[in-house]
């Protein structure tokens, strides 16, 4: 469809569906249940370069694999922000530096960076939706002049659920983007905004017809955000959301991630709201 939405099918391993050995370089505890794990190859072989919005299968040896977005790739180090939400992610968030794990990928179609060039970019993240958006954000910041205005809206449940706190502070200070942070609920020690992300959208400044939006978060949040953006005049085809589904193989063969006609692993995870709008209205599709 778009030139830069290319995926990498098989991963680097010769053995299909077999992970490559990696090891943990560092771990940052982001929130009580979330950690950012930095990994490097344990040996000479590594997976191919990742594109913003792609994911990998992270493998906890002896436990199993889970699809995890890439939240950064710098100097050959892959960063993954993982929330403890099950047996496998529990093991992944408990890793410590030096520990062994497996990686295969990268998989899927990421954010359409090419389509965003020359346009205003609106990035809306809900909860753990921020990590898969971070590589897109960083790519824009690396080549800032190639894009128009940059509006970021980030919502979390409570202030202590905010990830990348230091980086958020840094973005807040920049003059070439605008970051709004909001939480669903907070105590008296929070002086920021309270409310779902859609309540912050009316304040975002962008030229709707020349805007590309990247949205990632819980499905219900993405649906209402996309509706609000379309309501502001952004074409549905210019609103991109990153879908999440159960995945076992990540290469379109196991059937688990189907969402209507799409295999989320292979056709997504990033798909256009123009294509998805009718499906997002169907319960339990």
């Amino acid at each position: 469809m778009l030139g830069d939405r290319t995926g990498s099918p098989g991963g680097a391993s010769d053995v299909p569906l077999a992970p490559l050995p990696y090891q943990v370089r560092s771990v940052v505890r982001e929130t009580p249940d979330t950690a950012t794990v930095a990994v490097v190859p344990r040996g000479s072989r590594r997976i191919g370069p990742t594109r913003p919005g792609q994911f990998v299968m992270l493998y906890a040896f002896g436990i199993g694999e889970s699809p995890i977005g890439v939240s950064d790739e710098t100097d050959g180090v892959l960063y993954h922000t993982v929330r403890d939400a099950g047996r496998i992610t529990h093991a992944l968030t408990r890793l410590t530096p030096g520990d062994l794990l497996g990686v295969r990928g990268p998989y899927g179609h990421g954010w359409p960076m090419e389509a965003a060039r020359g346009k205003d970019v609106v990035i809306v993240a809900g909860g753990l939706g921020l990590p898969p958006l971070r590589p897109a954000l960083r790519e824009i910041l690396r080549d800032r002049d190639a894009y128009g205005r940059l509006e970021i809206v980030y919502g979390a449940r409570t202030p202590k659920d905010l990830v990348y706190y230091a980086e958020l502070q840094e973005w807040r200070r920049r003059a070439d983007l605008r970051l709004q942070v909001t939480v669903d609920a907070a105590g008296r020690d929070w002086y920021g905004d309270v409310g779902v992300v859609t309540t912050r959208l009316p304040d975002a400044r962008f030229d709707p017809e020349r805007t590309v939006a990247f949205v990632c978060g819980p499905e219900i949040m993405m649906k209402f955000t996309a509706q609000a953006l379309v309501g502001r005049g952004v074409p549905a085809e210019s609103v991109w959301v990153s879908m999440e589904r159960n995945m076992k193989c990540a290469i379109g063969l196991c059937g688990h991630c189907q969402f209507g006609p799409s295999f989320v692993c292979r056709d997504g995870p990033v798909l256009s709201y123009g294509e998805l709008a009718p499906r997002l209205g169907v319960r339990e599709l």
């Binding site: 391993s13 053995v15 299909p16 569906l17 077999a18 992970p19 050995p21 090891q23 344990r42 040996g43 040896f61 062994l100 497996g102």
Partner: peptide
Amino acid sequence: LWTAERKEGSFTV
């Protein structure tokens, strides 16, 4: 599909 074994701080598939 495959078998993996820990070996010298890594694993082989």
